[in-house]
Simulated scan of single mutants.
Amino acid sequence: MRTTFLLYIFLLFSYGAYSQEYKEKREKIHALKVSFITTELNLTSDEAAKFWPIYNEYEEREFVIKHEKMRKIVHQLGEKDINKLSDKEALLYLTQLEDADEELFLLKQKLVKDLKKIISPVKIIKLKKAENDFNRKLLKKYRAKRRD
């Protein structure tokens, strides 16, 4: 009983430490991204004050869709032998993935619509490029770190 209790406490603290470390890394990446995008878009202080609340809300909702909805579906598929799925089961998974994709698409459309009121279309295109460039640099850094 005591061993089980100690194991439970250890697992609880381990998970808490991992969760905290993940949160800190995510916050650091977010700060770097904010800095990168602000520089790339050359936002005025007025634009930045209006831009970031909209963009941050978009990112939060995008994170939920990608990491809670889509990851859950992919995880469920990973636990099954895909060759043994019935057409009915496969169709259900496809529908769930399509729904999540559509939700992401609509979210991106809303972002662009909202940003058009704040920044120029050229800056919106620069935002798309800055996001891609930032993600590429982050991935390159991650790969280099894994090689070391």
Rank of each mutant, 00 (worst) to 15 (best):
Q109M: 04
T39Y: 13
E57D: 14
K113L: 14
K126N: 00
V112F: 07
K110E: 09
R143H: 12
R147D: 04
S35F: 13
E62R: 09
K137A: 00
F134C: 03
E98S: 14
K113I: 15
E57Q: 10
I73T: 11
I119F: 08
K88P: 04
K113H: 12
L41I: 09
F5T: 07
N83K: 10
R143T: 07
K28M: 13
R143D: 03
I65F: 00
L91G: 14
K66L: 11
K145C: 04
I125C: 04
Y142I: 15
E27W: 03
L12R: 00
K66G: 01
I82G: 07
A100G: 01
L94S: 05
H75F: 10
L32C: 05
L43S: 09
V112N: 05
P121M: 15
D99F: 01
Y55E: 03
E102Q: 03
T95Y: 03
K141Q: 03
D148T: 09
H30N: 08
D114T: 11
V112W: 02
Q109I: 02
L106H: 07
W52Q: 03
I119A: 06
R136P: 03
M70H: 02
D99W: 01
V74I: 12
K84W: 01
L92F: 09
H67D: 04
I125H: 08
L111C: 01
D46F: 12
E21D: 08
K28G: 06
A144Y: 04
K50R: 14
Q96L: 11
A90P: 07
R2P: 02
E68Y: 02
V74C: 00
Y142P: 07
E47S: 03
L77Y: 06
F105H: 11
S35K: 06
K116I: 06
A48K: 10
K140S: 10
K80P: 06
L85N: 05
K88L: 07
F134L: 03
N56R: 15
A31C: 06
I9E: 01
L43H: 11
L104P: 00
R2H: 11
P121V: 15
Q76A: 09
E59F: 06
R26G: 08
Y22M: 11
E89I: 13
I65T: 00
K69D: 06
K128R: 13
K129A: 12
Q109H: 03
Y58G: 01
E98K: 15
L12T: 02
F105M: 09
I124E: 09
Y55K: 01
E103L: 01
K66E: 11
A144M: 06
D46L: 13
Y142H: 14
L106N: 07
F5N: 05
K117D: 14
E24W: 05
I73C: 04
F5E: 10
E27S: 02
S86M: 02
H75V: 10
Q20W: 07
S35T: 13
F51Y: 14
L111V: 03
K28H: 12
